[in-house]
């Protein structure tokens, strides 16, 4: 199994997609952090309060820190491509000739997808820390790990980003078409999950989706102006995410193991 994971890691890092995804992720999180930092404490005339808390507050640190979760879509795309590029370029033939026990290949891909997610989350967290810590200290805030809940948010980001790698692999195995898989991942993350997690009325559904469960795991408890969301408890979020991970792993194996490769 170690050899198979090594092979999958090599597949990932011998083409250019991984660092393009990493770069886009850093740009996106950077833009997001710039916005959160620039508009911190700015009073909204309509509601009379600040949409984003001041930079010196623990709430701001928590909000800004959660921007590190922005890597999950890129890890999901990476997971989709890990499977679909094998079909697109027919390298799947060589893969299954070398390892005819296809379940083991899927297992190695799932491990590698989770490891890639972990790597992306760590890089995102380094960027977040490099912006948030100086910003709050310069604004006169204090960095309290317990009040801003940095450890818990970080853990949530690490776990959820890793699991999105699994989701991507499951989705890729299901659709097999690269374009369809990537479009599916983007629509899922940016349209469906956004709607169900942003609109309070839809929260009863949204909290059971991977995005909502990831939010629950991070226990982000900040009013976005649309009402305070009611997530699952953190452990519930973790269980839901793991259940999704298992579901996608089963889907990936079941759709791949017996299929004719022609």
């Amino acid at each position: 199994m170690t050899g198979l994971v090594k092979a999958e890691v090599r597949k990932l890092f011998t083409t250019r997609l991984w660092w393009i995804m990493l770069l886009v992720m850093l740009v996106l999180i950077g833009v997001n952090l710039t916005f959160i930092t620039a508009f911190a404490g700015v009073t909204n005339e309509a509601s009379g309060g600040a949409a984003i808390p001041g930079r010196e507050t623990a709430e701001w640190v928590q909000t800004a820190w959660s921007a590190g979760a922005g890597g999950s879509i890129f890890v999901m795309i990476l997971g989709v491509v890990m499977i679909t590029s094998e079909y697109r370029y027919q390298t799947v033939t060589g893969t299954f000739l070398t390892t005819p026990r296809r379940g083991r290949v899927i297992g190695a891909k799932l491990i590698t997808g989770a490891l890639a997610g972990l790597l992306f989350a760590l890089v995102a967290l380094v960027l977040v820390a490099a912006v948030v810590i100086p910003a709050t200290l310069l604004s006169g805030g204090e960095l309290s790990l317990s009040e801003s809940r940095i450890p818990q948010v970080s853990l949530g980001i690490l776990v959820s980003t890793s699991l999105y790698g699994l989701f991507g692999i499951g989705l890729g195995a299901l659709v097999r078409n690269q374009i369809a898989g990537i479009v599916g991942a983007v629509v899922w993350a940016y349209v469906i999950e956004s709607i169900f997690t942003a609109i309070p009325v839809l929260h009863p559904v949204g909290k059971w989706l991977p995005g909502g469960a990831a939010q629950a795991l991070m226990s982000i408890d900040v009013d976005t102006g649309l009402g305070r969301p009611e997530w699952l408890p953190a452990w519930g979020g973790a269980l839901v995410l793991i259940a999704y991970g298992l579901l996608f792993a089963v889907v990936a194996s079941a759709t791949t193991v017996r299929r004719d490769i022609t």
Binding site: G3, L4, K6, A7, R10, K11, T14, G94, T95, T98, T99
Partner: peptide
Amino acid sequence: RILCAAAG
């Protein structure tokens, strides 16, 4: 090299 890794 990928095939080498997978095949041990």
